[in-house]
Design a protein around this nucleic acid. Structure first.
Length: 219
DNA sequence: GACCAGGCACATC
DNA sequence: GATGTGCATGGT
């Protein structure tokens, strides 16, 4: 399995190149993006983040002071704007109370403990927590998402029942705990996942299937 | 006009 | 513990 994971990584990297994740100018921006992108296309999240920047409220203290109504209005393009406003507020509250909104202080905490803390915040589940740990705080944690599961299941590498942590353990057990690799690997899987729908793609990047057989794999 | 997107919490059985 | 449902916009 270790060899297989390495091989898939090489194939993805050779096919797509570096993905430069996570796009964002600050740790805080990445954290906000992680919450906003829940079940939402990144394109819509970008619009929401642009709004926050335009109104100069993309900072913990500013966003904390912004009313829910106003916050919801700004993040509207990202969808689920009421629920995400509440989730942002919960997260900001956590940031302020536990770390005085100091990212460095946060990054200094033991990864496992920090993960537990994040999961206790209402609105932050495993993927959002791990995205924050890996992409905002550079912690060696592998992020699993719907694409990862779908790709690995369809290539027969995991079974249908495998849950988030089963899949995460697979990567964490067999890969070197390297932030750069974890970062790139997940980004590449998302990239491949997005290619699913492109019927024009003649062949799979990570397996020998082509043409109709390839289309069937992703049907 | 249907279908989907880088989830999560909560209700119900 | 498993399964279903609400949340909402914008692109294809």
């Amino acid at each position: 399995m270790k060899r297989k994971l390495g091989l898939i990584y090489s194939k993805l990297y050779n096919a797509f190149g570096p993905q430069h994740w996570w796009p964002g100018d600050s740790s805080f921006e990445v954290m906000v993006g992680a919450i906003l992108t829940q079940n939402t296309s990144w394109l819509n999240v970008e619009k929401a983040i642009r709004n926050l920047k335009k109104h100069k409220v993309l900072a913990p203290d500013k966003l904390s002071r912004l009313s829910s109504r106003k916050t919801a209005k700004l993040i509207r393009p990202a969808g689920y704007y009421n629920i995400k406003t509440a989730r942002l507020k919960e997260f900001l509250n956590f940031l302020l109370l536990k770390y005085r909104s100091n990212m460095r202080k946060m990054a200094a905490v033991n990864t496992f403990r920090l993960r537990q803390e994040l999961l206790e915040v209402k609105g932050i589940g495993p993927e959002t927590a791990d995205s924050i740990l890996l992409y905002a705080l550079n912690k060696p944690v592998f992020v699993v998402d719907a694409y990862t599961r779908r790709i690995f299941y369809r290539h027969g590498l995991i079974n249908k029942e495998a849950d988030y942590h089963d899949v995460q353990n697979l990567f964490m057990r067999y890969l070197k705990r390297d932030v750069r690799v974890f970062n790139e690997y997940h980004a590449l899987l998302v990239r491949l996942g997005k290619d699913f729908c492109l019927k024009s793609k003649p062949k799979c990047v990570i397996c020998p299937l082509r043409g109709r057989d390839y289309a069937k794999l992703y049907a």
